[in-house]
């Protein structure tokens, strides 16, 4: 039998009703992305392919507070099955992805948990030698940014992540939060820590200006539905369906770019423990080849996206 209904209480329709405001928060204004030019990559590039290579460490004692991110250990303690399968990505899978990029002379943005860097200096040596762009992706996959943290604790998490990366001489300009989760304070704390761009909000296809309350930060476009995590990990797409979906998206975005005159971005977010598997890696390689062969497509990372941005308004 379905659960009994509980009354909502007398304030349900009077508690914050922010319909007079443009948006129901103060972070950004409405914008009609399709209506104006925002991106000019130059060199004949209309569609920027932004490869995001996720290097993630899931601590075995991930608490699930406030939620378990996709991929986290969740079985009875000790969940060595999940823990070690994710760790495979940092020992084996990531090299397949790096090799696939290197073989084609392509650059990616590494979405790097700081504790991957602190725990695996050998991997870091190889990553740094590869010359990929680095996006700070929080401490680890158990370190979720959320409203329940005190401001001091969240500030300390960001500072520790950046300090670990600084130990390798890395000063990232861009950030991605583990589990795509932010508190309402995260953007301001990132801005105060010197971060100037973030890739957590998936509401646009071109960069835009995001008011943190402590200065502006650039919201980089991201499409979570196109990630291997979401499509293969959560929605159980088969590899051929994933490849077909990415290529359909690429063709559509490219056609719109040509029509509108403004560039478009296709984020291609791949995860070492998913796409780095031997039976999937050829799918990634096929995608890279197919995308590289599309006239008007070119591979970009954060610096190129920011340089191509003609307006953030």
């Amino acid at each position: 039998m379905s659960a009994p209904i509980r009354p909502t209480g007398p304030d349900y329709l009077v508690t914050p009703m922010r319909r007079a405001a443009r948006m129901d928060h103060g972070f950004y204004d409405w914008r009609d992305t399709h209506g104006a030019a925002h991106l000019e990559f130059g060199g004949g590039v209309k569609l920027g392919i932004w490869v995001q290579l996720a290097a993630e460490w899931f601590p075995m004692d991930t608490t699930g507070q406030p939620f378990l991110p996709l991929g986290a250990p969740h079985r009875p303690w000790p969940d060595s099955q999940v823990y070690t399968q994710r760790d495979y990505g940092l020992r084996i899978g990531i090299y397949r992805l790096l090799d696939a990029l290197a073989a084609r002379g392509l650059e990616a943005s590494l979405f790097l948990n700081a504790r991957v860097a602190s725990r695996y200096p050998e991997l870091m040596r190889h990553v740094l030698a590869s010359g990929h762009d680095i996006v700070a992706a929080g401490l680890d996959m158990g370190a979720i940014h959320h409203e329940g943290l005190s401001e001091a604790d969240e500030r300390a998490m960001i500072a520790e992540a950046l300090e670990i990366l600084a130990g390798y001489g890395i000063a990232p300009s861009a950030w991605h939060s583990p589990g795509w989760s932010q508190s309402s304070r995260t953007p301001a704390l990132l801005s105060q820590a010197g971060i100037t761009a973030m890739a957590d909000w998936c509401n646009d296809e071109v960069p835009y200006d995001f008011a943190t309350g402590q200065g502006s930060i650039v919201a980089l476009p991201n499409l979570i539905e196109l990630t291997d995590k979401e499509m293969i990990g959560r929605s159980k797409a088969r590899l051929h369906e994933y490849e077909a979906a990415i290529l359909r998206a690429a063709r559509r975005l490219l056609a719109e770019a040509e029509q509108s005159g403004s560039g478009r971005i296709l984020p291609l977010h791949v995860t070492s423990w998913l796409m780095g598997q031997p039976y999937r890696i050829a799918g990634f390689e096929r995608l890279l080849d197919a995308l590289a062969a599309m006239p008007g497509a070119g591979f970009v990372t954060v610096p190129q996206i920011r340089a191509a941005t003609t307006t953030l308004a």
Partner: peptide, 14 residues
């Protein structure tokens, strides 16, 4: 998942 939920809010805002 969590409140606020930036992922789900922004997906819908898209």
């Amino acid at each position: 998942r969590v409140m606020p939920d930036v992922m789900n809010y922004s997906m819908r805002d898209y």
